[in-house]
Computed example of a mutant assay.
Amino acid sequence: MSSKSEDRREHTCISCGINISGTDAAKFDCPECGTLIYRCSTCRKQSNLYECPDCGFTGP
């Protein structure tokens, strides 16, 4: 269970770096290592690449 302070923390899109707090962003686990990944709706729609900061996995 996440704490309220974690819910308020600012998150950035892993592809473009914008602040995604309060937007229609996706949150998911890295398919390789399980690290939490955040992506904005624009990068998702454009299928922009991302790279996991922990394991280096690259995805669309």
Rank of each mutant, 00 (worst) to 15 (best):
M1R: 10
S2F: 11
S2V: 11
S2L: 14
S3N: 13
S3T: 15
S3L: 14
K4W: 06
K4G: 03
S5W: 09
S5T: 15
S5C: 06
E6G: 07
E6D: 15
D7H: 06
D7T: 05
D7A: 13
R8D: 10
R9S: 12
R9W: 06
R9Y: 09
E10R: 13
H11D: 05
H11V: 11
T12I: 04
T12A: 11
C13R: 04
C13W: 04
C13L: 05
I14P: 00
C16R: 10
C16S: 10
I18Q: 11
I18T: 09
I18N: 10
I18W: 00
N19C: 13
N19R: 11
I20A: 01
I20W: 01
S21I: 07
S21W: 10
G22K: 02
G22P: 02
G22H: 02
G22Q: 02
D24G: 03
A26W: 08
A26H: 09
A26Y: 10
F28W: 13
F28V: 07
F28C: 08
C30Q: 06
C30M: 05
C30Y: 06
P31L: 09
P31F: 03
P31I: 07
E32C: 09
C33Q: 04
C33P: 03
L36T: 15
I37E: 04
Y38G: 12
R39T: 06
C40I: 04
C40D: 07
C40H: 06
S41N: 14
S41Y: 09
T42I: 12
T42Q: 11
T42D: 14
C43H: 01
C43P: 01
R44K: 11
K45F: 04
K45I: 04
K45M: 06
K45W: 04
K45Q: 07
Q46E: 15
Q46I: 04
Q46P: 00
N48C: 03
L49G: 13
L49R: 15
L49H: 11
E51A: 05
C52E: 08
C52M: 08
P53I: 13
P53K: 14
P53C: 07
P53T: 10
D54S: 11
D54N: 13
D54G: 00
D54F: 05
C55N: 02
C55D: 01
G56P: 01
G56E: 02
G56K: 01
G56N: 02
F57D: 01
F57T: 02
T58C: 07
T58F: 00
G59S: 07
G59P: 05
P60H: 09
